[in-house]
Design a protein around this nucleic acid. Structure first.
Length: 621
RNA sequence: GGGGCUGUAGCUCAGCUUGGUUAGAGUGCCGGUCUGUCACACCGGAGGUCGCGGGUUCGAGCCCCGUCAGCCCCGCCA
């Protein structure tokens, strides 16, 4: 945080290629008929120039005879001085009386500041503008929330920041975030365009799909009682573009899902959507890695490729998670054999029921307090585990509830060194995996195992094609119903389809999924079989996805693709704590738009035209 | 659908544990002094539906119930 009124990011500002200064966006200087430069772009090289500036009054210092204004625009701040020797009294009085956040036009001369008067915390701190004239052309009422903040001053409540978004967006931090977002979009277009990908837009008003997330619905006026849906993704459209022969497609696509929000989840969000024909997974990996390298480079980070890969099966076994954070170790291991012959009831019961005992070795974990381990157990239980078994080594001493059940030498087999801790969950994998995953992540946090700014990218491959509902046994698609089975597992579709792998893959960064995709089914018969396994009969498939099946029958090339969460990437590269900080006008956790007040009521006559009627929902069901 | 945290001056917060005089601080805002500040400094002033509704009580910012909003999490997100 820079000193000057929280203008911020002083360290970043001077790092070449990082911050969205004029030069790095498009090379223009902002000159118009009303101004010659942007305020924040002035440097020592401009000394001697007569300039006209337009900007917002960021701060004001009135020393009596001498008045300073800090003038701000998207490039930054510059100090403007009103010296009684150079301006008449009325101009100086105007400068002294202008309200913060007013828009003014200033004419003046760029001068070098005397050495003692320089401000090293300001990019323009070597110079100032000595004003000759001032016009207040956009007077501002006192801002409801501060734009300029003192060092260490807290942000206003997020509710107010969203309500007065036009003010919040004036803050240099958010200006930086949106400028970065712009640059990432340009990088995407440039990179994919150069690879022969065509940017093609697909409809926003689409056909409702009962599968997957809830749709946002739009009533049709021309077809009373019928609805469009806003797209959850352009999936089917892009597959049909492949059928049409466009070969390589991309879109920076807005997508909509009517589900509950999180800090990293908005009801409308942006994906980099990619699809290509005559490809296998390797082709997608190559393009995706190239794009990611380009995006992170634009964000100021160099990353190595190719990314390491891990099969889904191995990720679950070693980390209990399909998007493991590889910035730290703490791999899981199987201790079933150690416990099989013991009298430890919990372990025996779990093993007899077909489960396993798996655990995590924690080097130096003996230093954790009883309370800290108790808290880990709370997390494990919250994730569904019955408990967390503890074993601790202190010199030659073994302690913890598990110690006395293990035979001689058993503890050594676990490979624990002096001062180590081991934590076990005895349960079937579907319970142990999420529990150990939580424990592992919390251990990394508590023990501060993540240091520096490591970027651990990873491909997770060979996801299962289906997941089985724990109660009904019904199959659901892990990725989506159009995902191609692994060619080696096609035979399993008739015998044990739940074991079949998919040609599906995710890109994971530090435990966060940044993208995912698959090779699609291009054979209409195979697509019908997969629909069938998913419980979608021919008639239903025809009704919902007839246009896809029809397209596949019209001569479909093998194709596949991937989609990246663009907002999430922007958030990561901006170092922002929330998706809301990289979206100009985001929604709240109840999907409200506080600034413009959406969603809103509509007049009854509009509803009549749509053949809709308001229904009283006050009585709870 | 469920759980947690928060809501007091324009903004950020204290006051709530243990109900009791006129609800405070910093900042911002308004007025004044000040010619090199950059969190300018100094002097003075205005500014409150304690989110909203109900209840308990002689008395509620504080206790209870409900409700609204924001944030975080679980479910959900093919």
């Amino acid at each position: 945080m820079g000193a000057a009124h929280g203008l911020g990011d002083a360290g970043v500002r001077h790092a070449p290629g990082r911050l969205g200064m004029t030069e790095s966006v498009s090379g223009e200087d902002g000159a118009t008929t009303l101004r010659t430069h942007r305020c924040g772009s002035l440097r020592s090289a401009n000394v001697g120039a007569a300039v006209r500036l337009g900007g917002w009054v960021h701060g004001k210092r009135n020393l009596g005879g001498l008045v300073f204004l800090d003038l701000r625009d998207r490039d930054g701040l510059v100090q403007v001085s009103f010296d009684p020797a150079l301006v008449d009294e009325s101009t100086r009085d105007l400068a002294a009386s202008v309200g913060k956040e007013s828009v003014v036009l200033v004419e003046g001369d760029v001068v070098a500041r005397p050495p003692a008067g320089r401000n090293p915390e300001l990019a323009t701190g070597e110079v100032e503008v000595k004003a000759r004239s001032l016009r207040v052309i956009g007077p501002a009422v006192t801002p409801a929330i501060p734009v300029a903040r003192a060092k260490g001053e807290a942000l206003p409540a997020e509710e107010l920041r969203l309500r007065h978004r036009y003010l919040d967006l004036r803050r240099p931090e958010l200006q930086h975030n949106l400028i970065l977002r712009h640059r990432l979009m340009q990088t995407t277009r440039q990179f994919l365009g150069a690879q022969g990908f065509l940017e093609i837009e697909t409809p926003i008003l689409t056909k409702p799909t009962p599968e997957g997330a809830r749709d946002y619905l739009v009533p049709s006026r021309v077809h009373p009682g019928a609805f469009y849906a806003l797209p959850q993704s352009p999936q089917l459209y892009k597959q049909l573009l492949m059928v049409s022969g466009f070969d390589r497609y991309f879109q920076i696509a807005r997508c909509f899902r009517d589900e509950d929000l999180r800090a990293d989840r908005q009801p409308e969000f942006t994906q980099i959507d990619i699809e290509a024909s005559f490809v296998g997974p390797e082709d997608i990996y190559r393009v995706a890695e190239g794009l990611i390298v380009a995006l992170w480079k634009e964000g100021g980070r160099d990353i190595a490729r190719p990314f390491p890969r891990m099969r889904y099966e191995d990720a679950m076994e070693r980390y209990g998670c399909d998007r493991p954070d590889l910035r730290y170790g703490l791999e899981l291991f199987d201790a079933t054999e150690l416990f099989r012959s013991t009298d430890l009831g919990i372990a025996r019961a779990a093993i007899d029921a077909g489960g396993r005992v798996r655990g995590v070795r924690v080097p130096g974990g003996g230093a954790l307090s009883r309370k800290q381990v108790d808290e880990l157990e709370v997390l494990a239980k919250g994730a569904g585990a019955g408990g967390l078994l503890r074993l601790k080594r202190d010199g030659a001493q073994w302690s913890g509830p598990v110690a006395k059940y293990l035979g001689a030498g058993a503890a050594e087999q676990i490979g624990m060194a002096d001062g180590d801790l081991a934590l076990f969950v005895a349960a079937p994998d579907r319970i142990a995996n999420p529990a150990l995953d939580r424990v592992r992540q919390e251990l990394a946090r508590v023990m501060q195992l993540v240091r520096g700014e490591a970027l651990c990218f990873l491909w997770v491959t060979d996801f299962p094609l289906f997941e089985r509902d724990a109660d009904s046994g019904a199959l659901g698609a892990v990725h989506h119903p159009f995902t191609s089975p692994h060619e080696d597992d096609l035979a399993m579709l008739d015998t044990e389809p739940w074991r079949a792998r998919a040609q599906a893959y995710d890109v994971v960064l530090n435990g966060t999924e940044v993208g995912g995709g698959s090779i699609r089914i291009h054979d209409p018969e195979l697509q019908r079989r997969v629909f069938g396994l998913l419980g979608i009969d021919d008639a239903t498939a025809q009704r919902r996805f007839g246009f896809l099946l029809e397209g596949l029958r019209a001569g479909a090339p093998p194709h596949g693709g991937i989609a990246f969460g663009f907002d999430r990437i922007a958030m990561l590269l901006a170092g922002a704590p929330s998706l809301r900080d990289v979206i100009a006008y985001p929604k709240t956790t109840t999907a409200n738009a506080l600034f413009e007040g959406a969603p809103g009521a509509v007049p009854d006559e509009d509803l009549r035209e749509l053949r809709l009627r308001r229904v009283d929902t006050t009585s709870k069901e």
